Each structure stands twice: as C-alpha cells, then as structure tokens.
Simulated scan of single mutants.
Amino acid sequence: VPWNAFFQSKAVWAMIYAHFCGSWGHYTCLSWLPTYFSDELNLNLAEAAWVSVLPPLASVFVTSIAAQFADSLISNGVETTVVRKVCQTIAFLSPAACMILSSLDLGLPPWEIVAILTAGLALSSFALSGLYCTHQDISPEYASILLGITNTVGAVPGIVGVALTGYLLDSTHSWGMSLFAPSIFFYLTGTVVWLVFASSKPQNFSKTD
C-alpha cells in the first residue's frame, strides 16, 4: 500500500479535512439536536423526538436528487472535479447558512427553525455525490483504503465534537456558540479547502510511491 503517496497528495488531504468537517456537523447535531429542540425551542419530549428524525428522513429524498443532479452534469460533459466541488459545496454551505439563520434572534417560531435546520442538514447529503465519490474517482484500486483513512479521521468529531459541544454549552449557556458556531466554522473552512485542493483526476499512487 503506497502510504507515502497518499499523504503527499493534496487531493487526499482535502478529502480528509472535508470528511472531518462534514462529520463534525453531522455527529454534533445527531447527538444534541433533540436537547436543543427541547430546551431552546421548548418542544416537549415527544415532539423533540419526532422532529429529530426529520433531517435523516429528508436526507433520503435529497440523496436521490443529488445523485441524479451529479450524473446529469457529468453526462452533459461537465468535468468530474467540478461536479464534485459543486455537490460538496452545496453539502457544506447549505447547513452552514441554515445554522446561521437558526442561531440569529429573528423571532422565528419553533417549527420554522425546525424546518430550516431540517432542510440544511438534508442538503448535506449532497456530500454523497461530492466527497464520498472522490475516493473512487482518484483511485479505484485504493478507494477502500482511502475511504478508511478519511472515515477514521471523520470519526473523531463523534468523540471530540460531541463532548466539546457539551462543555461549551455548560460554559456559555449558548446553543449558538456551542452547537452551531463550531459546525459553521468547519463547514466554511471545509468549503474553502475543498474548492482549492480537491480533485477527481485519477492518480497513480503506486507509481509515485
């Protein structure tokens, strides 16, 4: 396995960081949104439980749209790298924008905030036509190993991010600062790194190692 070649590739590092950033928003919201709905939006436990399943349900619908969208662009001659960048940018900026709206004091009723967050998190499923296709794009031979590398790094927010959110919530008593701000930061920086360094051009890692 050409480990050295993997870690000398800017495209691989872009995938690693993008996976970390996407996972931060995913895992922290998965863990803390039910509490946010209950404590901040004053939904009862039954309501909070029900609305917490809306983002993953909506993601099922969005995933099929994202796949057809990406396939349509590629079949019409759009470069694969451009398609992956567009899809991943949608996957990052959509939840970031919705989290910004949710964290501002706009006087929105609870169910509108639920709808905004549901839409943003559902649109993050565009990553399945962005980041998650890029491993196969750049190296079909080593795609499984590359996914293993990025997924390992992507698992870190499930431990660190969830705990840090709780710590920040205890310290600041602000959902905007504890849950949304870190996710927004990683979504935005992940977008920049992805647009600058991501590539779907095939790479011969064995030859360069």
Rank of each mutant, 00 (worst) to 15 (best):
L101Q: 08
A58E: 01
N42Q: 15
A48Y: 02
E47F: 10
G77T: 07
K85M: 07
A91M: 01
D71Q: 11
R84A: 03
L101E: 12
N76Y: 10
L101H: 07
I74S: 14
L93E: 04
L43V: 09
L30Y: 14
S102A: 14
A97M: 12
L73D: 09
C29K: 13
P110T: 05
V53G: 06
N76A: 11
G77F: 06
L43P: 07
T35G: 04
T81E: 08
W32P: 00
T63M: 12
G107P: 10
L43N: 08
S102K: 04
S75Q: 13
V60N: 04
S52P: 10
A66R: 09
E47A: 15
F61N: 02
L104E: 09
N42C: 13
V62D: 00
C29D: 11
D105T: 11
G77A: 05
N76V: 07
A49N: 12
A48G: 06
Y36P: 00
L104V: 10
T80I: 14
T63C: 07
W50R: 15
Q88E: 11
Q88L: 03
A96T: 03
A67R: 13
V62A: 00
A58W: 00
S102E: 03
W50S: 15
Q68S: 15
R84K: 05
N42M: 14
S31P: 09
S72D: 10
D105W: 09
F61V: 14
I90P: 02
P55V: 03
V53H: 01
A96L: 02
S59I: 01
L33N: 11
V53Q: 03
A67F: 14
F92M: 11
L73R: 00
L30M: 14
S59E: 01
Y36T: 00
L54P: 00
Q88N: 10
L73G: 04
L33A: 09
L43E: 08
L54I: 04
L93W: 03
A96M: 02
P56K: 06
A91C: 01
L41R: 01
S94D: 02
M99C: 10
S64P: 11
E112P: 11
